[in-house]
Design a binder for these strands. Structure first.
Lengths: 115, 115
DNA sequence: ATTTAATACCTTGCAACGCCAAGTAGTATA
DNA sequence: TATACTACTTGGCGTTGCAAGGTATTAAAT
């Protein structure tokens, strides 16, 4: 890997920025989940996210009132914090759905006008 | 506009992050352009970007060797800095093209698995 | 009883980036 | 000379992803 690729990896990181919150809400709209489970689902979609990114993000979403959580015992190991969407979270998800579609449209507008 | 919407505006800002460099390269792959012209094209695609964002970004891309520029006199006002893609810039654009498509696929994977 | 391993949650410090606001400078018109 | 318009530049701020390290619970192994 040369220097140029390293720089572009950074761009890819930046590209994901903002879409992460959206992805979390999407995943939780399907079913309640705890952090390692969410990490697994993101990995399944080839979106690599690490713990140190996810936990503060979940805390932010909770503080914004978009998520709540409940403790639930694990069959093995410490109890798990299962997050779920609040009503506000569902509303926010709809807004972000639209934002995502808009951004895809905008980029496509620019892409298609290329010669 | 309530507080919740303000928070989500921030998310939209973050969502654009990283895609901006990609958009600049896309625009410049079509024709050389100077800053206010680029701002206009972004605005046409409903992507609002301000000067204070664009100029440092152009400087970064130039320092990375993806862009070069030439001064050109203006019919009115000060001379203009016309940016154009370098060979490296064209290569980077291809990489970012693929990155963009990958990200769209990844998000769609998560979107479609929703019940 | 103590150690080890596995699981889960959280925090700190750093660097990158978009944005706001203000500043600098060239050109033309009044 | 003053004003207006255009174009480029910069400093500080807030947000965020990440690497690295820490804490806590549980069960199995020693």
């Amino acid at each position: 890997m040369n220097i140029q690729n390293i720089e572009l990896d950074n761009v890819k990181t930046q590209m994901r920025r903002g879409t992460l919150e959206y992805c979390i809400l999407l995943i939780l709209s399907r079913e309640d989940a705890y952090a390692p489970q969410i990490l697994g689902e993101l990995k399944n979609a080839d979106m690599i996210v690490v713990e140190g990114t996810l936990y503060p993000l979940l805390a932010r979403l909770k503080n914004q009132g978009l998520l709540s959580y409940r403790w639930q015992e694990s069959p093995q190991g410490p109890p798990r914090k299962y997050y779920c969407l609040t009503d506000l979270g569902h509303e926010a998800l709809q807004v972000l759905d639209r934002s995502w579609e808009e951004m895809v449209e905008q980029i496509n507008t620019i892409r298609k006008s290329r010669n």
